[in-house]
Design a protein around this nucleic acid. Structure first.
Length: 861
DNA sequence: ACCTCCCGCCATGCT
DNA sequence: AGCATGGCGGGAGGT
């Protein structure tokens, strides 16, 4: 197991390389490996499924047990696998299954549709890689391999990868090969997307559409005009930009070039979709609106139903992936008309600028930087070369890029012939499975241990793992070590943590004392994930406000808090491992290097021009700068001391979520999934285009409320293990932080509680994301148990605890702070990045709808 | 009956 | 031509 862990942590892709060691771990793995070769899908195997079945579950019996416990379905799978294991011919195996199992049984054994969901698949996928991979290692992803390991058709992997690519979490390296960047670039990417979104006036478009709709309700004639209006406007200036794929500095190109094909595609749609969240005040976007806007861009004119339908389908695909990343959460917005599916942004708040202050990209750039105000400057100063500008790729540029890339690819691809590797890697299977196992285990663990007192330990363990650092592995590089070290501190709950004085000190041994406090784990895991994990089980910390709140329910907010925490956890979860970690790494440095920085730089430079349009950034940035400065002078701040960490987290979290927006926003912004923006203005603005300003009532379901309450701070603050922090505390904290408005308190009762005067009736019902289940662990999970009992480690990830309050912000914060490109030091940039948002805001404010808006989060289905 | 969205056909475009 | 990508929408599972 250890080996596996190491491998996993270090470099996911490496696993393939590492495989050998992995194999050792389990005989089964070996078998799989051997078997796989037979398949010999040099080309892309059409149906990995078969293959996969055999492979995946090699993991330890313990894990299996856990998993089985978790789900009967899983159990069935295992059974199947067992059958397969022996076999060389998959078909035969299947037959056997059929024979052995009665029709019903067989059917049962068949994974249900849910099990095949893209969200779950994405979770599995994500579990294979660390949120913050060590750049030094090559984190290559072989699509074939992954498809096999996950037992899905490659087509599905493309869906996931395309979305991840849109976020620059992966980049195409060559045919069949992608490089995993994890979340290193995420913040930056989001910043860029936000900027682009602003440029495109998405917020305005949203408002227009809403307005239009609103009007339509009573007046058809108007509708059209409005629509046309909107559409035109959109298509007009923005249209062009929209079509382009927004690239990030370090990561992007290949994909685009490769895919020059259709820039609209899932990738672009994904980016646009994300932009909508980033620019809208409430950060809640309904599918309907998103689809309209996306269609509008392409073809304003026809809102053809079929087209709309197709768009919606795609959006679901994208949403599933984003949900798995804990960036969004499914909610329902209820308006007069009825209830509409929508998604709420649960990711970090982002400043308009390319966030990456010191981030990742080393390439110098120009325009963007120049434009960028302080943030960028900060980044620049800190890292001269680094600030990468973001830009939208211009079609014209694409060709150039392509040629360049093609050359590069040729080079890259040659070596890569994926197939073989994959097989070889197949060995990895062990790894992958472990991850799965880990996830499952994590879930189980969470359930079992929710209440266990040791969360902190687990967390630590997980953290390390998650961090992709392999705990004991000799392999670790300093960087990793640093990461690990830093990460934990950040992550850990305020109270809990100990140790490492500062993230900066890399030398410090990673092991954190695991305090009994539960929260610690929360830290590791990003809230979002945590949630996810839980949710599936029904544990849903988030969901159940009541339990969490028990401590003190004095205010509903508490409950809300819980939810939030959960949601946060979810959101954070993906990141968990790394999220907190301060990864000093320079993301992708390696990869980049491989790619030829020079090319990129040049490309980018050219790109910059294109992107150059973003003057907005500057403005935004300015605002952000101020904010950031105010909030956190420097990333350094973050000595992980408990106290400090808490403060930082809270702050950060609040920042992120609320982002730049006005104070009001903060409240809303809270990562909490269900949370509804308390502030009436924001909500109204976004949601309701209506011009009339009317006070709205916010109806918050308990859950949602709970969510509100959850603030990262809380999480961090509460050392208490799994249990939710007392609601009172939470409330206090939140309020204190500004996450929640005092007025907002949430009531436990299911009924909605009027929050702000303005809001008349907004009810939020938390829905859990469908995928929640699998999410839990990522990378960490895979390794069941090195040091810790397998279960524990897993648990960390998945801790179901309801309240793990990891603040989203914490994650982001951590990232920003730690991420110093060069090293530990990167104060300014990070800080800058995180806090931005204040300035922007709100177009939406304009309209205050009289309508009532209800936002409900779905609990797990 | 509606919401989701899996599944896989088949177009597209690179090699 | 062969293969990698991925657009697309039928249609089915879930609720």
């Amino acid at each position: 197991m250890e080996n596996e862990k190491e491998n996993l942590f270090f470099e996911p892709h490496k696993r393939g390389l590492m495989k050998t060691p992995l194999k050792e771990s389990t005989a089964a793995n070996i078998v799989l490996t051997e078997i796989q070769p037979d398949f010999g899908p040099l080309t892309t195997p059409t149906k990995p499924k078969e293959i996969s079945q055999g492979e995946p579950w090699t993991p330890t019996a313990n894990l299996k047990m856990l998993i089985s416990a978790v789900s009967p379905e899983i159990r069935n799978r295992d059974q199947k696998r067992g059958l397969f294991d022996g076999r060389n011919g998959l078909p035969e195996a299947k037959d056997c299954l059929h024979e052995h199992l009665s029709g019903d049984e067989y059917e049962k054994s068949q994974p249900s549709r849910k099990e095949k969901s893209l969200g779950l698949l994405c979770h599995k996928f994500l579990a294979r890689y660390p949120n913050y991979p060590n750049p030094a290692v090559n984190n290559d992803i072989c699509l074939d391999e992954v498809a096999e390991e996950l037992n899905v058709e490659r087509r599905r992997i493309y869906d996931i990868v395309n979305v991840l690519e849109s976020l620059h979490m992966v980049s195409r390296l060559a045919k069949n090969r992608y490089t995993w960047h994890g979340r290193h670039n995420l913040h930056k990417t989001l910043g860029t997307l936000k900027t682009v979104g602003e440029e495109n006036k998405y917020a305005e478009q949203i408002m227009m559409i809403k307005k239009r709709e609103y009007e339509q309700e009573f007046d058809f004639s108007k509708t059209y005009s409005l629509e046309d209006h909107i559409m035109k406007s959109n298509s007009g200036h923005d249209g062009h930009a929209d079509m382009c794929f927004v690239e990030l500095p370090g990561v992007e190109f290949r994909a685009a070039s490769v895919n020059s094909r259709k820039d609209k595609s899932l990738r672009v749609m994904s980016q646009k979709f994300v932009m909508l969240f980033l620019v809208s005040t409430p950060q809640i976007v309904s599918l309907e609106i998103a689809a309209k806007i996306l269609i509008g861009e392409d073809h304003v004119e026809d809102l053809d139903k079929s087209k709309f339908k197709t768009k919606i389908r795609r959006l679901y695909d994208i949403a599933n992936v984003l949900s798995s990343l804990n960036l969004i959460k499914k909610v329902h917005v209820t308006e007069e008309r009825g209830r509409k599916p929508a998604f709420k942004w649960t990711g970090p708040e982002i400043s308009p600028n390319p966030s990456g202050c010191g981030q990742v990209l080393p390439f110098p750039h120009s325009d963007l930087e120049a434009k960028r105000p302080s943030k960028d400057n900060c980044a620049k100063n800190l890292f001269s070369t680094r600030g990468k500008p973001n830009f939208t790729r211009h079609p014209s540029l694409i060709k150039l890029v392509k040629s360049i890339e093609s050359d590069r690819r040729k080079i890259n691809s040659a070596p890569s012939s994926p197939v073989k590797t994959s097989k070889a890697e197949s060995t990895q299977n062990s790894a992958p499975f472990p991850s799965k196992m880990a996830q499952l285990a994590a879930i189980c663990k969470m359930q079992l241990e929710e209440q266990s007192s040791e969360p902190s330990k687990k967390a630590k363990g997980q953290q390390e793992r998650s961090g992709h650092c392999k705990p004991a592995s000799p392999l670790r590089t300093l960087a990793n070590a640093e990461l690990e070290l830093t990460a934990p501190p950040l992550i850990q709950p305020l109270g809990v943590v100990p140790l490492i004085p500062s993230p900066l000190s890399p030398a410090v041994p990673v092991i954190l004392p695991q305090a009994p406090s539960g929260p610690s784990y929360a830290i590791y895991l990003q809230p979002a994930q945590a949630q996810t994990m839980t949710a599936p089980q029904g544990l849903s910390p988030t969901v159940c406000p009541a339990p969490s709140s028990k401590a003190t329910r004095s205010k509903d907010p508490t409950d809300a808090t819980t939810e939030k925490a959960a949601s946060d956890a979810k959101s954070g979860a993906p990141t968990r491992p790394g999220s907190l970690q301060p990864v000093p790494d320079r993301p992708g440095a390696k990869n980049r290097d491989q790619e030829s920085a020079g090319e990129r730089g040049s490309k980018r430079a050219s790109m910059l021009d294109d992107s150059g349009s973003k003057k907005k950034f500057k403005e935004d940035l300015k605002g952000l700068e101020n904010v950031s400065a105010t909030l956190f002078p420097s990333g350094y701040l973050i000595p992980l001391t408990q106290c400090s960490s808490l403060g930082a987290e809270s702050i950060l979290s609040s920042k992120e979520n609320s982002s730049t927006l006005s104070p009001n926003h903060r409240i809303y912004s809270s990562p909490i999934t269900g949370v509804i923006p308390v502030t009436s203005s924001e909500l109204t603005a976004v949601n309701f285009p209506s011009f009339h300003v009317t006070p709205l009532k916010l109806m918050v379901s308990p859950t949602s409320v709970a969510a509100v309450g959850n603030s990262p701070a809380l999480t961090s603050s509460h050392p208490v293990p799994g249990q939710n922090p007392s609601s009172a505390i939470v409330n206090f904290t939140l309020q204190h932080l500004g996450l929640i408005s005092p007025s907002v308190q949430v009531s436990a009762s299911p009924g909605a509680v009027p929050v702000s005067p303005r809001i008349e009736a907004v009810s939020v019902v938390p829905e859990n994301v469908g995928t929640q289940q699998g999410r839990a662990t990522r990378y960490d999970s895979p390794v069941p148990g090195q040091n810790q009992p397998s279960g524990q480690s897993v648990a960390v990830t998945g801790t179901p605890q309801p309240v793990p309050v990891t603040p989203k912000g914490s994650q982001s914060v951590a990232e920003s702070f730690f991420r110093t490109p060069g090293g530990p030091v990167k104060p300014m940039g990070a800080s800058c990045m995180d806090f931005d948002g204040a300035n922007k805001t709100s177009v939406g404010t304009l309209f205050v709808p009289q309508r009532k808006l209800e936002v409900s989060t779905e609990d797990g289905h």
